[in-house]
Design a protein around this nucleic acid. Sequence first.
DNA 1: AGTATATGGACCAAAATAAGTCTACTAAAA
DNA 2: TTTTAGTAGACTTATTTTGGTCCATATACT
Lengths: 101, 101
Amino acid sequence: MKMTEKEWQVELGQHLRNLRLRQNLDQREVAKRAPMALNAVKNLESGKGATVESLIKALRVLGREDWLDTLAPRVSISPLQMLKSSAPRQRVSSIRARSHV
Amino acid sequence: MKMTEKEWQVELGQHLRNLRLRQNLDQREVAKRAPMALNAVKNLESGKGATVESLIKALRVLGREDWLDTLAPRVSISPLQMLKSSAPRQRVSSIRARSHV
DNA sequence: AGTATATGGACCAAAATAAGTCTACTAAAA
DNA sequence: TTTTAGTAGACTTATTTTGGTCCATATACT
């Protein structure tokens, strides 16, 4: 069962809505504190399309901006590996990247 | 030190870029697999403004859609409390909600 | 129970912004 | 040095934001 982008958007909106209800805030109050338009909050929660900026504004009001940082790639390399690769890649290496050729 | 929305957007973009580089994909490949415009990928990673839809598309390509669900509010109520409040709220309760009055 | 209230959803139009498609240009990697 | 991933800009199309109004119904009150 794989979800479509829109289904994920709806799911994300429901999470935001739950967070808001938990703090007993109405949509107007969130919009006011963001600040952003009331309709933007509605779009966000109903999953009808929103910008990343709106998402972040809402997260800030709900006190969950820190969630954004949890996307950071989990460190899976051993400390010994760190000695080898000193500088992080800034570009992909060519061979495998050219899967579009 | 509190970050602005734009700074958060940049930070989020960097996380996405790191995830991409870890998989040795270039922006074109991500755009192709999403599918989305190359410009949308660039906007996302540079934090210059993007839609939630673009964010989700990129996350899917990078295999991190599950991250979206980690926003779900952590359950902090005791099992005893669950017996009391049966149905989840669909709206805020009135008194505290009217902070704008 | 029935009633009043106001939250949240569904619309609309205009302004703002992002997506999509292109062409150089820059700089990191080979 | 050569190759090429990533950036920057211009431009058109598509979508979102903003700011309204209307209204169904969950919630609160009598």
